[in-house]
Design a protein around this nucleic acid. Structure first.
Lengths: 342, 342
DNA sequence: GCACCTCATGTTGACGTAAACATTTCGATC
DNA sequence: GATCGAAATGTTTACGTCAACATGAGGTGC
């Protein structure tokens, strides 16, 4: 009665297949790994036996044997921002193409303890490498030593870590957005920045400021948001009440959406009265009202490069200490125009 | 020269710790697993040795030994829809709380082969259970046998699969949206549905239709979108051109956004001329213009329930064959109002 | 016809862990 | 003070796979 087929327990192993096919376990292994030095008849017999007993390779045993897991850990702060989730999607695709799997670890609450927790689970070595996609300063604050010898790729952070860093050209993007508004004739550009923990936010902010200064324009006080549309709306209400504001650059599309709403609410027209630019080019941006001028980021490229760098390092054991920049591109839609009164 | 510390290779094992601490490997194992039957002094000595040699448990060996991986596979069609990515986020949080890890498998292109590919990697048994989050019909079409005996939870699909199914109350949500518009005084409600492969889309559609019929209202022809804002925009253009259209129910918020844009473009006012309702209550919906009336789904609950059901089944070996319904709630904002002319 | 090579297949052992069982130590009980 | 039991620790072994080595069968060259 014990071996009824519905019984819980381990599945069939190579030994079972071997018995069924009348060969040794090693031959089964060779077939399972696609080695060529197996007779065609034998191979067929083994494959048949595999099918009959429902064999599935045990990846734990395989990993134990090889010392490799064919698995990549992804530590990500949250999936709620558009960029993170798009990047993860791209990583997932690229990783699958390489024949690896992804172990996903989210760090939901922004506390040091949580980040440390994610890393400690990583410590249970079950991954061949790690991609880190967290707000950098959050990473800085946590006193975490990455497991020594574990390949790591950091996305969108400063280069403090001695690991390959994939990075979008934050500065160029922010500069092109700011310049676009100035070139349209606006006297200056207001900025709604992302949270200070974010290195990306910091660089967009710095670049916006530098661009204004280089053009000899006054630099309005920075408004600090948290990436959410709600925070964009709040700051937007203040901006909408100030008739001198004619151009706003939000550090992401979601905050730009909030700004648009605030402007609509008080009847300021976009782009006639106020121009708005976002950052990210999320899929919905083209369907905002009005369609949003924004800075396109290629999250696909970011994900692909991150995976390529990591897989390379895993294969060779040599960190590729390059800093890879992924370009951005300004997409002009209908939310920007020259200021009306001049 | 061979054992320089930077060398690639395996980390220290229990044997190394045992040697360092002057105890047996078994004692190290006991300490590592928090067993109580270890002398306090010994425990301290072992922990110290672990720290010194930089010991990290090898999860492959552990999994091989125990026959359990403490890992859950998540098969997801894509992260680009808001709902999927929110649900995944919730799953990730719940799974971490249970002390499990997530192996993520995306099925990017909507082809049968891709789905089969994701499953075949699953076949390499490395997970204790699976959560499936794919458009149901896509799943139906693929000739896939789930590995027998592997616990599975299916989210948002029909009950064809003999596995626990977590489900939002699609029908109730769609009905409440439709009823809301009728109660405001609209003669009928147009519907932009999700893609036919989606079971969720199908049920929202059926429920919309049933609600209209129950109220004795004419049922306009269905418009079929693909969840994207662009598809909503396309259909929206047609609707905007028809002055008899006063109420639109889109099967998700993104398509609703496209409809809003189309209406704005031709100068039809929302909600004065046309009322619009969405579905999902994505974070941005409150910042659409006008703020969108929509059906709130609790993706957190969906994720949590899915994980709870799966972990339960893994622990007990007994499938919990219940169908769990997660309620929805209509959130009325500013995109709906009584029709102007009456 | 014998040495030698090639190719298919089999046998052994180790990867790191932890359950099962064995041993030792020490204090409590009568 | 002999007996028993509990608690701490050690020893053996198996989990499933696959590299390394061993074996054996057929073929080639001189």
């Amino acid at each position: 009665m014990r071996q009824s087929s519905g019984q819980r327990g381990r599945g069939p192993s190579m030994a079972d297949v071997a018995r069924e096919a009348g060969v040794s376990g090693q031959t089964v292994s060779r077939v399972a790994n696609g080695r060529t030095n197996v007779d065609a008849d034998t191979r067929e017999r083994v494959l048949d036996a595999m099918r009959r007993v429902g064999y599935r390779p045990n990846s734990a045993a395989r990993a134990l044997r090889n010392g490799r897991f064919r698995t990549i850990g992804v530590i990500i702060s949250s999936l709620s921002t558009f960029g993170n989730s798009r990047t993860l999607d791209a990583i997932a695709g690229a990783v699958a193409d390489e024949g690896f799997s992804i172990v996903l670890m989210t760090v939901p609450r922004h506390t040091q303890g949580e980040v440390a927790g994610a890393f400690s689970r990583l410590n249970e070595q079950a991954v061949d490498g790690v991609i880190i996609l967290i707000e950098q300063h959050q990473l800085d604050q946590s006193e975490i030593e990455l497991p020594a010898g574990l390949p790591v790729v950091v996305i969108d952070s400063n280069a403090r870590y001695p690991s390959p860093v994939i990075d979008t050209a934050q500065a160029e993007g922010a500069a092109s957005a700011t310049r676009h508004l100035l070139e349209l004739g606006h006297a200056t550009v207001w900025h709604i920045a992302g949270p200070p923990q974010s290195y990306a936010a910091e660089r967009r902010l710095k670049s916006w400021q530098a661009t204004l200064e280089a053009a000899g324009r006054p630099v309005p006080p920075v408004l600090i948001g948290d990436w959410s549309a709600d925070s964009g709306y709040e700051h937007g209400q203040r901006l909408a009440a100030d008739p001198s504001v004619t151009a706003v650059f939000a550090a992401n599309d979601q905050m730009a959406l909030g700004v648009l709403r605030a402007l609509h609410e008080v009847g300021r027209r976009v782009p006639d009265d106020v121009s708005v630019v976002g950052f990210d080019d999320m899929a919905e941006a083209a369907n905002f009202w009005p369609p949003l001028t924004t800075v396109h980021q290629s999250f696909d490229d970011v994900g692909r490069h991150a995976v390529a760098a990591l897989v390379g390092e895993i294969a060779t054991g040599q960190p590729e200490s390059t800093l890879i920049h992924v370009p951005t591109e300004l997409v002009v839609r209908s939310s920007t125009a020259p200021p009306l009164s001049r």
